[in-house]
Amino acid sequence: NKFNKEMRNAYWEILLLPNLNEQQKRAFIRSLYDDPSQSANLLAEAKKLNDAQA
């Protein structure tokens, strides 16, 4: 399933972002589970926040 693969990839990438705190990571991951079809958008948002907090 395409969404499962995308979601899994986004999950691990979000977990490994160094500048997000645990609460932020949990919020993004919760959103991933709520709507896996938004994986790419959520990952992009997480990366943007990660860069902003660098």
Rank of each mutant, 00 (worst) to 15 (best):
N1R: 01
N1W: 00
N1D: 15
K2M: 09
K2N: 14
K2D: 12
F3V: 03
F3K: 02
F3R: 01
F3H: 07
F3G: 05
F3Y: 07
F3S: 03
F3W: 14
F3Q: 05
N4W: 10
N4T: 03
N4D: 14
N4M: 03
N4H: 10
N4K: 03
N4P: 09
N4A: 02
N4F: 06
K5H: 05
K5L: 01
K5I: 02
K5E: 11
K5Q: 14
K5N: 05
K5A: 07
K5S: 02
E6R: 01
E6W: 01
E6G: 01
E6V: 01
E6K: 03
M7N: 02
M7S: 04
M7V: 07
M7P: 01
R8E: 15
R8Y: 08
R8W: 13
R8P: 01
R8I: 08
N9K: 15
N9L: 05
N9E: 13
N9H: 09
N9W: 06
N9I: 14
A10E: 01
A10S: 04
A10H: 04
A10F: 04
Y11A: 06
Y11W: 05
Y11D: 01
Y11P: 01
Y11K: 14
Y11E: 15
W12H: 15
W12Q: 12
W12G: 09
W12S: 14
E13R: 14
E13M: 11
E13I: 15
E13N: 13
E13D: 07
E13G: 09
E13T: 09
I14T: 01
I14F: 02
L15I: 13
L15R: 12
L15H: 14
L15A: 07
L15F: 08
L15M: 07
L16G: 15
L16M: 08
L16E: 07
L16K: 15
L16Q: 11
L17M: 11
L17S: 10
L17P: 00
L17T: 02
L17A: 05
L17W: 03
L17V: 01
L17D: 01
P18V: 05
P18N: 12
P18K: 13
P18I: 07
P18Q: 11
P18E: 07
N19F: 08
N19T: 08
N19R: 09
N19D: 09
N19K: 06
N19P: 00
L20H: 00
L20P: 00
L20Y: 00
L20K: 00
L20Q: 00
L20S: 00
L20N: 00
L20G: 00
N21E: 14
N21D: 12
N21P: 04
N21I: 15
N21A: 08
N21Q: 13
N21H: 12
E22T: 11
E22Y: 08
E22R: 06
E22W: 03
E22V: 06
E22H: 06
E22A: 11
Q23F: 12
Q23I: 10
Q23T: 13
Q23P: 09
Q23R: 06
Q23K: 10
Q23E: 15
Q24P: 00
Q24D: 11
Q24K: 02
Q24H: 07
Q24L: 07
K25V: 06
K25Q: 04
K25W: 02
K25H: 02
K25L: 04
R26M: 07
R26F: 07
R26L: 05
R26A: 07
R26V: 14
A27R: 10
A27V: 10
A27M: 11
A27T: 14
A27H: 15
A27W: 10
A27G: 12
A27E: 04
A27K: 10
A27Q: 14
A27I: 09
A27P: 03
F28L: 08
F28Q: 01
F28D: 00
I29E: 02
I29G: 04
I29L: 05
I29M: 03
I29Q: 03
I29P: 00
I29Y: 08
R30M: 03
R30K: 11
R30G: 09
R30V: 14
R30Q: 08
R30T: 10
R30Y: 11
S31Y: 04
S31H: 13
S31M: 10
S31P: 04
S31V: 10
S31D: 12
S31T: 09
L32S: 01
L32T: 01
L32H: 01
L32D: 00
L32R: 00
L32V: 08
L32K: 00
Y33T: 04
Y33L: 04
Y33E: 02
Y33H: 04
Y33M: 13
D34L: 04
D34S: 14
D34K: 11
D34I: 15
D34M: 12
D34Y: 09
D34F: 13
D35T: 08
D35K: 04
D35P: 01
D35I: 09
D35E: 08
D35A: 06
D35L: 04
D35S: 10
P36F: 07
P36L: 03
P36S: 08
P36G: 08
P36A: 08
P36K: 05
S37K: 05
S37Q: 11
S37W: 12
S37H: 04
S37V: 05
S37F: 12
Q38P: 02
Q38D: 05
Q38I: 11
Q38N: 08
Q38M: 08
Q38Y: 09
Q38E: 11
S39Y: 15
S39M: 14
S39E: 01
S39V: 13
S39G: 09
S39A: 04
S39P: 08
A40S: 10
A40K: 14
A40E: 08
A40F: 10
N41V: 06
N41I: 07
N41W: 10
N41M: 08
N41T: 13
N41S: 11
N41L: 10
L42A: 08
L42R: 13
L42E: 02
L42Y: 09
L42N: 05
L42V: 13
L43Y: 04
L43I: 05
L43F: 04
L43S: 11
L43D: 00
A44Q: 08
A44H: 06
A44W: 13
A44V: 06
E45N: 11
E45P: 00
E45K: 12
E45G: 10
E45D: 13
E45A: 13
E45Y: 13
A46I: 02
A46M: 01
A46D: 00
A46Y: 02
A46L: 03
A46K: 00
K47E: 04
K47T: 05
K47W: 02
K47V: 12
K47F: 09
K48E: 13
K48D: 08
K48T: 12
K48V: 14
K48Y: 10
K48I: 10
K48M: 12
L49F: 07
L49H: 09
L49R: 08
L49M: 11
L49N: 06
L49K: 13
L49E: 09
N50Y: 01
N50T: 01
N50P: 01
N50E: 04
N50R: 02
N50L: 01
D51Y: 12
D51P: 02
D51I: 11
D51A: 10
A52T: 09
A52G: 12
A52F: 14
A52E: 09
Q53W: 15
Q53P: 07
Q53I: 13
Q53N: 09
Q53F: 11
Q53T: 11
Q53D: 13
A54H: 13
A54V: 11
A54K: 01
A54L: 07
A54N: 08
A54T: 12
